[in-house]
């Protein structure tokens, strides 16, 4: 089913309809907790420092200090140079360390550099590698090259999980997104991921829907279960809950777990906490009451 086409109007309409699901009271509370447990808490900036990583890891472990009912996030996502610091901070927890690699975010580097990048990251302690595909090759129709690269990166990952970033905004069409998803899955991706977060346009509901449908079809065809990670641009609880609806109604309960669905986000957490606190106490609290790490 690799070559099944996607109708843009139809997929946008379906995503719009699903986003009108009314999520209230207990479903909102449970949904937000589930989302927190699915977050890849991310910082990918040139100015990232060990200090910043320490603060973020603390937030990852205990998003709402003093409330053990709120789960830890799934992973932290950092540049390779900061893996060691993250590793130290997260020792003894179940939180995974994800690192971007393969010449993130452009992917415009020679293959041996990309592979070395991956091997280094794994050696330094990354549990998960977020790679970028070569969009230039993809758009030039060199699908074999894209596939081979992913396969080699997967090999270099060893035990680490591989998330393949398609950078959907650069692929532009839903047909391309589906095709790239399929290539990634066939070449060894454990997860497919929408975006680097470095472009203005990142994850959207229709794009995520197309990718979920692709991984569902791949499962229909092969029995292999692939995970999904929308990343970038998801900032509010309301948005995140809509993604959860998409998962629930497209691929079902099997995927409603951090093992198979992640949110790549840096600023989403505090809105989730704010909404959760509101659900628990009945009142909204000012932003100052939530730590900004």
């Amino acid at each position: 089913m690799m070559h099944v086409t996607v109708d843009q109007v139809g997929v946008e309409e379906r995503a719009r309809k699903l986003s009108t699901r009314s999520i209230k009271t207990s479903s909102k509370r449970e949904g937000i907790k589930l989302i927190i447990s699915m977050i890849d808490l991310t910082t990918l900036e040139g100015k990232d420092s060990p200090g910043k990583i320490r603060a973020m890891c603390q937030k990852a472990i205990r998003p709402l200090p003093g409330n053990a009912d709120v789960p830890s996030v799934a992973a932290v996502c950092v540049y390779p140079n900061l893996i060691r610091e993250a590793k130290r901070c997260l020792a003894g927890t179940n939180i995974k360390i994800a690192s971007v690699a393969t010449g993130f975010p452009s992917g415009q580097y020679p293959l041996d550099i990309k592979l070395a990048d991956v091997r280094d990251a794994v050696t330094m302690g990354a549990d998960e590698i977020d790679m970028v595909i070569d969009r230039g090759a993809f758009l030039a129709g060199k699908y074999r090259k894209v596939a081979d690269e992913i396969a080699k990166v997967k090999e270099a990952c060893g035990p680490a999980h591989l998330k393949v970033i398609l950078e959907t905004a650069e692929l532009e069409t839903f047909d391309n997104i589906r095709k790239a998803s399929w290539i990634a899955m066939e070449s060894g991706a454990d997860f497919i991921k929408t975006s680097t977060g470095k472009l203005k346009e990142a994850a959207t509901l229709p794009i995520t829907l197309v990718m979920l449908e692709a991984l569902r079809d791949y499962w229909y065809e092969t029995g292999k279960v692939i995970g999904m990670k929308p990343a970038g641009g998801i900032r509010t609880s309301k948005d995140a809950l809509r993604y959860l609806v998409l998962v629930k109604e497209t691929v079902g309960d099997t995927w409603l777990t951090p093992d198979l669905f992640r949110f790549g986000a840096s600023t989403l957490t505090n809105d989730l906490l704010m909404q959760l606190a509101k659900e628990m106490t009945g009142n909204y609290q000012a932003a100052e009451y939530f730590t900004i790490d």
Binding site: S22, K28, W219, K248, G252, D253
Partner: peptide, 13 residues
């Protein structure tokens, strides 16, 4: 044939 499972892991109130 494989079938998806749509259950009650996360329900709408």
């Amino acid at each position: 044939p494989r079938q998806l499972y749509f259950g009650e892991k996360w329900q709408y109130a």
